[in-house]
Design a protein around this nucleic acid. Structure first.
Lengths: 228, 228
DNA sequence: CGGGATCCGTAAAGATACTG
DNA sequence: CAGTATCTTTACGGATCCCG
């Protein structure tokens, strides 16, 4: 780790721990509930595994998280109390970003895999029927390998994400482009408006289609309004 | 700046702006009210002027601050609305630091110049008499050049800081070591206790001495309790 | 397959000196 | 006062490889 700021101020001391590259984004994943190395990687796909490994060690040394499991196998990373208390910091940064970062700048960084991984996490399963529901997303602007995605909501509320056809009967097809879906998920536009402007097309179960804005949980920051 | 995180998430977008080295500490200075290049330098003395200059340009490009003054001379940096809204982020980080960073770790980073500069800023002038008050601090453990400091509170409430004897009559002498004074200012110990344990010695105006804990404004984070 | 470590090229930051 | 210029050191990115 670099030499530090040499300031007794708590802002500086905390920044030594928090304000290194990737650290806050990684903490967002931990706060959101990911615990395994490869789950964390899915949330920070552009971070090298070497740096991820190093950051995890640094955060453990700083008392932010705890590594469970003695061997290499099945290690889990869990936030300590100090780590859980970082939720406020991550939220403050996210709220500021949602308020002040130009939407167009955010929407220049589209990533289907990341969007689906996030959507899986915050799906609101309550309004869904008491049986398995399968929703297929089709992003027509994406290369083949990232074009089709399946969200599978089991009867017990567990949500799975697939990028290869799981073979189940699909209850709802959503055909759109990645920018539109990301925009909806970030709270920048609405399902209804995108359907009307034909940028989002839904086919299948009409009940599921009608309540998409409800069961599709949005980004935790979607409620925050843009400022100028 | 390097390529960025390539994530649409507002936490990641904001982190690209905020979580680079020195940036949060610099923003603390701006939020605290410094506007001039060399005033900012006093708050971040270990940051090279080259990096300070670069960060100021980056923050201007990000819409966080605005540079006023067309030529080089007398330039001022002022937070925009987006920048002022970062106060919440800086506070969240500082509160976390005060709660969770070991006090001993903070107190390994003593800096007399920085402490006095901060104390000058948050002095509570209301309980002071309606004439000029001069308080001399003497840190016996410091090298000669950083040993003696004068805080001069003018009748109108304006506070000046000197590291060379300004020649005024001194109303109160405080003799202590830097760690003790820093600890008091961070809210980790009290004037009364340090006087009783003889680590802080006050001489001069007894009224001024008696109310030191009151007129000595503490760090903005001093009210936050340490956690375990 | 999960959980890393290693190596090397590039990019950022530190130190110090200097200038319009 | 408000910055540049230059050189060295450190951190990061990306690919590859390893091991239980």
């Amino acid at each position: 780790m670099q030499a530090g700021y040499k300031q007794f101020c708590p802002v500086a001391m905390a920044s030594e721990v928090l304000c290194t590259r990737w650290t806050i984004v990684l903490l967002r994943e931990l706060v959101a509930g990911s615990n395994r190395f490869n789950d964390l990687r899915r949330g920070v796909p552009r971070m090298s595994p070497a740096l991820l490994s190093r950051r995890l060690k640094e955060l453990e040394a700083a008392g932010v998280l705890e590594r469970r499991g003695n061997g290499k196998a099945h290690a889990e990373y869990h936030l300590t109390k100090a780590g859980q208390d970082l939720r406020g910091v991550v939220e403050a940064i996210g709220v500021w970003g949602q308020r002040w970062v130009e939407a167009d700048l955010s929407l220049d960084n589209l990533d289907a895999s990341l969007l689906m991984w996030d959507m899986r996490r915050s799906l609101n399963v309550d309004p869904l029927p008491d049986r398995r529901s399968v929703i297929e997303f089709h992003y027509e602007d994406q290369p083949t390998s990232r074009r089709s995605w399946w969200l599978i909501v089991e009867a017990d509320g567990h949500v799975d994400l697939c990028s290869v056809d799981p073979g189940f009967e699909v209850d709802l097809f959503a055909t759109t482009d990645l920018r539109t879906m990301t925009s909806i998920w970030m709270g920048l536009s609405k399902v209804k408006a995108e359907r009307q402007s034909k940028t989002l097309h839904l086919e299948g179960d009409t009940g599921l289609a009608k309540h998409m804005q409800t069961w599709l949980g949005l980004s935790p920051f979607a409620v925050e309004k843009k400022k100028v």
